[in-house]
């Protein structure tokens, strides 16, 4: 048989910063997309071997298995404090935390506010899925009004359970914050925008321009109790109006960065 050689072009490749193993995430979960974006940015910036990740307690507790850079695992909510310890001792390394809404906006609220307030040169990737995924679907600080969870069985009643925490808005008020934005993972266009933001957040850190956070609107089809497709639609219909995508703080120095 005669074969003609066709020029081979690589259009898709696993980033070297991402481990070549299957994850434990539910099918359709956006945690996997977020992981990939971070890994692509690490590859592009060629920072994998000087990056240290801090994993949270939540569904992404095993994030350290999925990246090929160094990693530590924090107590629930304390990742920004642990990251601070690492960054202060090793200021020339790139340090990032990866945290869920329960982890960061509930039990870890104090640590995140103070890390941002100090202008700690860290990058925080914040996965807002409006629920406690790992423990089976309880109310998160980001759960929407009226949203049913296993600990708000009749829907979140803001009278007794309070209002959703808008973390990007909140942190953007702090002078230490260099770059604070919100993106979403529900469609390709938004995923591309999310990646750009993650890149800029890491650049902020590398240039010593202070605290950076990218909030990523995410899905948890399992605990929302709907299909994967429905969960994407639900994010678009309900989360985006409550949590508008946008740049909440871009310090002048960060705005001048050329990527």
């Amino acid at each position: 048989m005669v074969t003609t050689a066709t020029p081979v072009q690589v259009v898709y490749k696993r980033p070297t910063s991402l481990s070549d193993i299957p994850t434990h995430y539910c099918p359709g979960c956006t945690h996997g997309i977020a992981h990939r974006l971070i890994a692509e940015v690490m590859d592009e910036m060629n920072i994998r071997d000087k990056t240290i990740g801090v994993a949270p307690v939540g569904c992404s507790v095993f994030a350290y298995n999925y990246f090929t850079c160094d990693f530590v695992e924090a107590a629930h909510g304390r990742a920004p404090a642990m990251a601070t310890g690492i960054k202060r001792v090793l200021p020339d390394r790139v340090v990032f935390t990866y945290q869920g809404d329960g982890d960061m906006a509930s039990i870890g609220m104090s640590e995140i506010i103070h890390a941002a307030g100090r202008g700690e040169n860290l990058t925080v990737i914040f996965i807002n899925n409006a629920i406690y995924g790992m423990t089976g679907g309880q109310m998160a600080p980001t759960t929407l009004p009226g949203q049913k969870t296993t600990s708000s069985p009749n829907g979140r009643d803001v009278e007794t359970m309070g209002f959703p925490m808008k973390m990007a808005e909140l942190l953007s008020q702090l002078d230490g914050a260099g770059y604070v934005v919100r993106r979403s993972l529900h469609d390709p266009k938004n995923i591309r925008m999310a990646k750009k933001a993650i890149r800029l957040a890491f650049e902020t850190q590398v240039h010593g321009l202070g605290f950076s956070m990218v909030e990523l609107l995410s899905t948890c089809n399992t605990n929302w109790g709907i299909s994967v497709l429905e969960s994407i639609q639900w994010l678009e219909d309900h989360m985006i109006p409550a949590y508008p995508i946008g740049d909440y703080k871009v310090s002048p120095a960060v705005a001048n960065l050329k990527v």
């Binding site: 329960g102 509930s106 039990i107 406690y132 790992m134 423990t135 089976g136 309880q138 296993t150 600990s151 708000s152 069985p153 009749n154 007794t160």
Partner: peptide, 19 residues
């Protein structure tokens, strides 16, 4: 309370019953 396995059903039960 605050959710944590393997105790969470207790909190969930209370979230329904007490209110």
């Amino acid at each position: 309370g605050y959710p944590i396995t393997p105790q969470t059903e207790l909190l969930e039960w209370m979230s329904e019953r007490l209110p």
